[in-house]
Design a protein around this nucleic acid. Sequence first.
DNA 1: GCAGCACTACGAAATAATTCGTTGCAGCCG
DNA 2: CGGCTGCAACGAATTATTTCGTAGTGCTGC
Lengths: 133, 133
Amino acid sequence: MSTTPKPTPSELKILKFLWQHGPSTVREVHEGIGVSAGHSYTTTLKQMQIMHGKSLLVRDDSQRAHVFQPAVGEEPTQRAMLDDFMDRVYEGSASQLVLQALGTSRPASSEELEAIEQLVQRLRSESDGESEA
Amino acid sequence: MSTTPKPTPSELKILKFLWQHGPSTVREVHEGIGVSAGHSYTTTLKQMQIMHGKSLLVRDDSQRAHVFQPAVGEEPTQRAMLDDFMDRVYEGSASQLVLQALGTSRPASSEELEAIEQLVQRLRSESDGESEA
DNA sequence: GCAGCACTACGAAATAATTCGTTGCAGCCG
DNA sequence: CGGCTGCAACGAATTATTTCGTAGTGCTGC
């Protein structure tokens, strides 16, 4: 059942904050990202309540100011979103996506390119002989 | 002004059809993708009217059955969507996205890996010496 | 000429996402 | 004890997306 949900853009911002800062109160999240976005406190609160309802967040209400935590990991979430995006935009072709991502106006640094190359090399040697579907 | 719009999922399906099949009537698009999706004809029509309103499609109404064409190219659209996605999910880091995309359960074929590697090599040699802006 | 068919146009309903105002409650300060 | 402050809950308005039903109109075959 836990099909790793696909958060909306504003939900993703909150998840990112929590992944980065750890368990936080609504106030903390709001100060961290709501204020600069020009939102009122209740907007952040409502969003987090909705996310709790969707089981995107876990809530500890033993304190007066409830403490929230992501119910989903960062990587699985990114992967789910990526898979969906890949299917919708690139017919599920990872290579198409990768080629275009690397051709972006804001390319990767040399170090990043090296990391990518290493992964490619490893994948190539791994698929040596046991490919083709 | 022409900020290469970010089509919605169903808009993208129609654009994909038109990119692939060239200028088409609503009927053709509907037979191509609407029927199998269980939509009625007017749903496809309405969608295309909306897209025309948003200037996502160009319409030739000299014939009784209007002929539609994408007003945007496939690549610029994909790129715009990719950039948006990259920003939202990967903080704009192409390499992060690429590394995760290649680690997907449905990896690229050997040929695709080779194409990727070639691009990486070219990028690495290009960025040799002329760094950051 | 007229019936019927194919197409476009219009309006509207259903769902989801986003944003806030208002309310009610708990705890602290004097 | 009485009121002020901070917080969660609720309801509601707004906007975007998706989906159709109905209506109007021009063409074609008889």
